[in-house]
């Protein structure tokens, strides 16, 4: 499984990448949304884990742009802001919105990994 992970907090992105990576899971971590968008034009992924609040492009905007080229991908959003947890998942067909600090078992579950 290929996971695209984007968070402007580079240390968190790298930590999550390291935690999630395994024999079955390949993680591509990016620290800025535009770089991630460019990467997405030429690469495939099954799941994207995106921070909501980022400069330049928000996680929600990034998701809408990425979805065009990847209609089958699953999108999971994460945010430090609880009010973001109320983003309407049906409207944007988000698999889940997770609140930071992340609860790792539930993250693994949402991503379909066994922790």
């Amino acid at each position: 499984m290929k996971v695209l992970l984007v968070d402007d907090n580079a240390e968190l992105a790298d930590n999550l990448a390291e935690l999630l990576a395994s024999e079955r899971t390949e993680v591509f971590a990016h620290h800025d949304a535009t770089a991630a968008l460019a990467w997405g034009r030429t690469h495939d992924f099954d799941t994207a884990l995106l921070d909501v609040r980022m400069p330049e492009l928000s996680g929600v905007e990034l998701m809408r742009l990425l979805r065009v080229g990847h209609p089958a991908a699953r999108f999971v959003l994460m945010s430090a802001y609880t009010q973001d947890a109320e983003l309407d998942p049906t409207q944007d067909t988000v698999a889940a919105v997770l609140t930071k600090p992340l609860d790792l078992p539930s993250l693994a579950k949402v991503l379909g990994l066994d922790a």
């Binding site: 907090n9 240390e11 935690l19 430090a80 930071k100 600090p101």
Partner: peptide, 17 residues
């Protein structure tokens, strides 16, 4: 509280690793 959440997320993932 919100500003504390990002550093806490790093701390908790780092301690896991």
């Amino acid at each position: 509280a919100h500003e504390m959440r990002n550093p806490l997320a790093v701390l908790s993932t780092s301690s896991h690793l």
